[in-house]
Write a protein that binds this DNA or RNA. Structure first.
Length: 920
RNA sequence: AGGCGCGUAGCUCAGGGGGAGAGCGCUUGCUUGACACGCAAGAGGUCGGCGGUUCAAGACCGCCCGCGCCUACCA
């Protein structure tokens, strides 16, 4: 018996078609010479190896909303897209590919490997860009950038060279974070700390001149004791006062090491108050070593294994033979066993501590002593801090500036060199002729192509390869093999994408950009560094506002991750529900200041919303032919109360949505649209027009209704377009007389003050309440929906009468009343069910009393509620302080409330009494 | 350890000095001339706890409890 399903909205073909149409028309291309005011966003460039995940979807949906909205507002809205070259990740991908062919990158050689990565990039690197297009991202695709393309390389070289010559980039041997698997240095923020249950080993170091006395040190990494070069105690600690300056025997080695006093390293409260110092394997110890001029003994090589040769450590030969070449964990076991066997291991406790892991591959990071390149960040950070303090760049929500400040004010030099092949190779060269003795450059391959550049080598830094050594005129220059941190090139993105170092028109017009949209987890990685570089090289902030959006989690609040299997794949969602529903969901959930939980049910709900609007359009389409002229201006229509109400509500909608977008309150914009479309436009106005069309309303009224439905739809489509670009385009294209390439080129609506109609809002509000009251009576009395009723309204003022007269036909239609009578002196019918709307009595005459009990119960509940409220109000009013101190309008409002409640209560009592009589 | 954020309906969450709100879910009725991806009616709340400011606190302040995240040189 079920009717055939017919008009559901199916996004599939429609979205594809529009994406193609926009692309073919280069609709998103921005002309930089346009006189329109500029608005610019640069995309946070996704990783070239990446696939669109939910975070990208959120991030780019919000940017797209801003871009489409600003463009409609008349801005020259530029959104520059692109990807970053993701040094480690991309190199990993290609290495894996090679390995499956049985090739190691080393056998291929650097140039061939890099060529291979480029080839991979050309063939497979476009995935995420294609996915962004499916999402509807209206980027200026003609301007797509890549952090490794030639113009960006030029920018990177320029920046590097200038910073070097200003002394803001330097090369030096430091302890850095080293990923033994990626075999490269990492910056501090590329290390993720993870709470780990480990062990705390207490080891005894006998005093050299009094072996019976032993200093107990505690460590989580016992294997590093072989590289200890001192033990520290607090200089003011009486327990150890006489030990400073003496030496202890370092177990398992032939060495003795000094006991030093160090108030910085040592916390007297912790353990025994004695700390081992291993300057080559711990950041604190490194600094302590500098303070006390201690030697550094490095125990591990770049693969994270125990080094093949560590003469300085003077390890017991038997032990050394056992552990040479072993990984850290294995070496640890053996060292611990040895210590225990020889009686040096005093105690082992469970211990919770943070272990650093590589953010790309989760391998445990090893502090590693090696020469690296650094950016001296202090001088760059100061102006970046001031810019935010002075409000030249504003964070939204504002509290994120705390995170920014905290990091910036405590910033450390940035290790920018990576021991990779894929990336911007450091533009530094070394002269072999100056280094005839091979003290600074060490050949590491047969063909003399690869070098290890030792600590004290003197770099020659230039934007292009120097012809000869400026010192000796020698020709044998070798280039530094390191590449730069990917984030180094990303930091330049807001101006490198606009053609810097050329002084382009684009830069002149669009720098600083308007808004950066990103999530909090890259405030350090990216926002802070863009601020520093932008201020340094453009002498201005890179963006005026930074909108930090929420992190998307799954329905249980867990971070989505492949290993947990809880990822929602945006592409699957788009296939299933359409990009529009998905985008609208993301916007609707994008409340400020909170992570969001996304579930498929939510998306489904908003797909229903798409469908709702689609069907309203279907309805309208059917009656459009009634319009003699679809472009007839509103001013030439004759409007009744309901029409004026719609125009008034549209004004309100325009204002709310515009305000919300200005404040980055995407969720409020979305819910205003949802509320209007569903619960005002469809639930009420469309039904009103329907009633005009079905009844014998005047043709004029029918025309007005259809014309305003069209106007309402049109306005809604404009407001909704940034959120659901595809469906709105599709409907727009089907509206009569609208033409044009794209809704995108239409203007953003403005509220029209001449359409304000507070009176209509009040009147329609009354109509809706009367409708609800009558329907409630029907429902309680179990009157079949198909059965017509007689509705009788006993009013209390002339004003009510006028309003009801004006909306009577709608009231009749909505309540299925064959007759609506009203008046201040109307005889109360009997038997009848009664409801109250303000001081209007809603009577519904009935002849069957069987369902009255339900009504009676409901009235009793209402009576209770009214009684409570009345008590509350009366209590307030009896408070002399309230009456004297609260604003008069608040007091007046309470007085009105009191009167209304008292009246309602009296009426309810009266009705209950009558019902009691009837039922008796 | 410090910092930030969050505790509001069964669930997910808006709101932010004077009316306790939405979506989903739930109950009941309905194939009603766009839509069952729907329509109509309804139930459901000590706004985490305690104290303070105020005529008035769910909202502002303090403390406490619980949860989450970030930062840190917790050997």
């Amino acid at each position: 018996m079920s009717r055939e399903k017919k008009t559901g909205y199916d996004p599939r073909g429609i979205e594809e078609r529009w994406a193609k149409a926009w692309e073919e028309a280069s609709a998103s291309h921005v002309d930089e010479s346009s006189p329109k005011p500029p608005y610019a966003i640069v995309i946070p460039p996704p990783n070239i190896t990446g696939f669109l995940h939910i975070g990208h979807a959120m991030n780019n949906t919000l940017q797209d909303i801003l871009i489409r909205w600003r463009r409609m507002q008349g801005y020259n809205a530029l959104w520059i897209p692109g990807t970053d070259h993701a040094g480690i990740a991309t190199q990993n991908v290609v290495e894996r590919q090679l390995r499956s062919e049985g090739i190691e990158r080393e056998t291929l050689g650097r140039d061939a490997f890099v060529a291979r990565v480029w080839k991979w990039k050309e063939e497979s690197g476009g995935t995420i860009i294609r996915q962004l297009k499916r999402l509807g991202a209206f980027c200026d695709w003609d301007r797509e950038c890549f952090t490794m393309d030639e113009p960006r390389q030029q920018a990177v070289r320029e920046v590097f060279v200038r910073l070097f010559h200003e002394g803001l980039i330097y090369r030096g041997e430091r302890l850095i974070n080293w990923c033994p698997r990626c075999r490269t240095a990492l910056s501090d923020i590329e290390v993720e700390h993870e709470e780990t249950q480990g062990l705390l080993y207490h080891i005894a170091y006998p005093l050299a001149d009094d072996p019976a006395t032993r200093l107990i040190v505690a460590t989580t990494r016992p294997e590093t004791m072989l590289g200890d070069t001192a033990v520290a105690v607090h200089p003011d600690d009486p327990r150890h006062a006489d030990q400073i300056g003496r030496r202890v025997m370092l177990p398992l080695t032939g060495r003795t090491i000094p006991v030093v006093g160090d108030p910085i390293l040592v916390d007297r409260e912790f353990g025994t108050g004695a700390v081992k110092i291993t300057p080559a394997h711990d950041f604190n110890d490194f600094e302590a070593g500098e303070r006390h001029n201690l030697p550094r003994i490095a125990l591990f090589d770049e693969t994270g294994r125990f080094a093949g040769s560590v003469p300085d450590a003077q390890i017991e030969p038997a032990l050394y033979r056992e552990i040479a070449g072993l990984e850290v964990e294995k070496a640890r076991e053996i060292v611990v066993r040895r210590l225990r066997d020889q009686g040096f291991l005093v105690q082992v406790d469970a211990h919770l501590h943070a272990v650093g892991k590589c953010y790309r591959c989760r391998t445990v990071v090893e502090p590693f002593l090696s020469p690296q390149w650094f950016v001296k960040v202090g001088p760059l950070a100061d102006p970046a801090i001031r810019a935010v303090e002075e409000g030249r760049t504003r964070f939204v929500p504002q509290h994120w500036e705390n995170t920014y400040f905290a990091w910036m004010r405590n910033i450390k030099d940035w290790c920018i060199s990576r021991q990779l092949w894929w990336g911007h190779q450091v533009p530094a060269w070394y002269c072999r002729q100056c280094d005839r003795d091979h003290l600074l450059l060490e050949m590491v391959s047969e063909d003399q192509q690869a070098h290890r550049i030792l600590r004290d080598a003197q770099p020659i830094v230039a934007t292009s390869p120097p012809d000869a050594c400026p010192r000796c005129g020698g020709q044998g220059l070798v280039r530094d093999p390191d590449v730069l941190d990917t984030w180094f090139s990303s930091a330049l993105w807001p101006f490198s994408t606009m053609g810097w170092p050329e002084q382009t028109e684009l830069l002149r017009r669009f720098y600083p950009t308007s808004t950066l949209v990103t999530s909090f987890d890259i405030i350090f990685f990216w926002v802070a560094r863009m601020m520093m570089m932008g201020l340094k090289f453009m002498n201005d902030v890179p963006f005026k506002e930074v909108y930090i959006h929420a992190l998307v989690r799954d329905a249980e609040g867990q971070k989505m991750s492949k290993s947990k299997g809880n990822v929602i794949d945006p592409l699957e969602i788009i296939d299933k529900h359409g990009a529009d529903a998905f985008r609208f969901t993301l916007a609707a959930l994008a409340a400020q200041g909170r992570d969001i939980r996304l579930s498929e049910e939510r998306i489904e709900g908003y797909r229903h919303f798409c469908n709702k609007l689609w069907n309203a359009h279907q309805f309208l389409t059917r009656y459009l032919p009634l319009l003699e002229d679809p472009l007839l201006p509103v001013s030439s229509l004759s409007l009744d109360l309901a029409d004026r109400w719609l125009l008034h509500r549209l004004n309100g909608l325009i204002e709310s949505v515009t305000w919300a977008l200005e404040e980055y309150r995407f969720n409020e914009a979305a819910s205003a649209l949802y509320q209007f479309v569903w619960h005002e436009y469809c639930d009420w106005y469309l039904e009103i027009v329907k009633s005009r069309l079905i009844s014998e309303s005047s043709r004029e009224l029918q025309q007005t209704g259809v014309a305003l439905l069209l106007l309402g739809l049109e306005t809604t489509l404009r407001l909704l377009h940034p959120f659901m670009p595809f469906m709105t385009e599709e409907i727009w294209a089907q509206l009569p007389g609208r033409g044009g390439i794209s809704l995108m080129l239409e203007h953003w609506p403005k509220a029209d003050p001449t359409r304000e109609a507070a009176d209509a809002e009040t009147a329609m509000g009354l109509m809706m309440e009367l409708t609800r009251a009558a329907r409630d009576l029907r429902s309680d009395l179990e009157i079949a929906p198909s059965k017509a009723i007689r509705l009788m309204l006993r009013t209390a003022s002339d004003n009510d009468d006028r309003t009801i007269e004006a909306v009577k036909s709608y009231l009749a239609a909505f309540t299925r009343a064959e007759q609506v009578t009203f008046g201040q002196h109307l005889d109360r019918p009997s038997p009848a069910a009664v409801g109250l709307v303000g001081d209007i009595e809603v009577h519904l005459p009935v002849d069957d009393l069987s369902a009255f009990t339900a009504r009676q119960q409901k009235l009793r509940r209402e009576l209770d509620k009214v009684g409570q409220e009345l008590t509350r109000v009366e209590k307030k009013l009896s408070n002399a302080d309230f009456v004297s101190k609260a604003p008069t309008e608040v007091v007046a409002k309470q007085r009105d409330e009191q009167a209304r409640l008292a009246d309602t209560r009296a009426k309810l009592l009266q009705h209950l009494e009558r019902i009691d009589q009837l039922l008796r």
